[in-house]
């Protein structure tokens, strides 16, 4: 059943509608929500929504509970390849839990939060941005780690990044929901404006596995083996940033173990032909982020390594 969560009139003959698909069966009372499309340039979640709906519909009798799927929290951004909400300054994932008295985006954020509250689990799927390519990973605030890591391990992803608490992240959907006792896990994978089917399939399998462990899904998980993720421990994530502005060239793929001093890539000047900077791994570890967009300025993030 398709339900409209937010409906708001735009100036000219159009309504903004944020919708969800509710799949429900059996007597189970548990509810899991899959949300994505907060940033209009992140598309990986679209494939996950599509595949998950079809896998459940094909075996509806195996469902015992409710699955709610929200493919696009920011439909105007998705439709105009805009990361934020068009005509609004702030990142949508920095205005939660929203404000019913605020602008359209703030009021929508409030309504979304209210709609999700009380779910037994929320999976918030992101796909980095156009600049960075990420391996399938889950990001959890250290304050929520004890409670959420056991669930995150069921999601068939490669890496769990338990990060330090930052005040600004308090305005994210995940923090807002976790704060009101609605467990919410953030998935990051792939790169903006693209869809990687393989990563999507792995996550769909992980979501079904999580549902099975929660008692919502009785179907088989195929293949049954679920990845055991690397879990970050302490402050061992290393950031490699550009020291020079130019074009970043690389042959390196992420989701590999890099050795200390191994070449990650180089920043070049296409006018002079000079190599401006050679970027090497400062430690041995799991390369889980790598720059996807070649134009860089001083400071642009090139790679992230989890030190092993």
């Amino acid at each position: 059943m398709i339900k409209t969560v937010v409906s708001s009139a735009l100036p000219i003959d159009e309504k903004l509608r944020i919708k969800k698909n509710i799949l429900t069966n059996g007597k189970g009372k548990k509810r899991i929500c899959i949300v994505t499309g907060t940033h209009g340039d992140e598309l990986e979640g679209q494939y996950v929504c599509f595949e998950l709906i079809n896998k459940i519909k094909a075996n509806m009798e195996k469902l015992d509970g409710t699955v709610e799927i929200y493919p696009s929290l920011n439909p105007l951004g998705m439709d105009s390849i805009t990361r934020g909400v068009p005509n609004f300054d702030l990142d949508m994932n920095r205005i939660f839990p929203g404000n019913p008295e605020g602008s359209m985006a703030e009021a929508a954020a409030f309504a979304i939060c209210e709609d999700l509250k009380g779910a037994d689990m929320v999976i918030d799927i992101h796909s980095s941005n156009i600049f960075l390519r990420e391996i399938p990973q889950i990001r959890i605030n250290v304050d929520e780690a004890e409670h959420l890591v056991p669930y995150a391990r069921m999601l068939n992803i490669d890496f769990i990044w338990v990060h330090e608490s930052a005040t600004v992240l308090q305005a994210t959907l995940a923090h807002s929901l976790n704060r009101c006792s609605t467990p919410t896990i953030v998935v990051e994978m792939g790169v903006g404006m693209r869809i990687n089917h393989s990563m999507g399939n792995e996550l769909v399998r992980g979501i079904l596995n999580l549902m099975k462990n929660m008692g919502i899904w009785e179907g088989e998980i195929s293949p049954a083996v679920i990845s055991e993720p690397v879990i970050s421990n302490g402050d061992n994530v290393i950031f490699l940033n550009a020291d020079k502005s130019g074009i970043f060239l690389t042959e390196t793929r992420n989701n590999t173990i890099v050795e200390k001093d191994e070449l990650i890539g180089k920043i070049v000047d296409p006018l002079s032909g000079d190599i401006l900077q050679t970027i090497k791994a400062s430690e041995r570890g799991l390369l889980f982020t790598i720059r996807a967009y070649p134009v860089v300025y001083e400071g642009s993030l090139i790679a992230r390594i989890y030190k092993l």
């Binding site: 990361r83 934020g84 300054d89 941005n129 600049f131 600004v168 950031f239 940033n241 134009v295 300025y297 001083e298 400071g299 642009s300 993030l301």
Partner: peptide
């Protein structure tokens, strides 16, 4: 212009971080 970040959301900044943080 490159990444759409707002300098006024980057304080106190970080001189080893992203461009607008610097």
């Amino acid at each position: 212009a490159l990444d759409g970040t707002d300098i006024n959301r980057m304080f106190p900044g970080y001189d080893q971080g992203e461009t607008t943080q610097r």
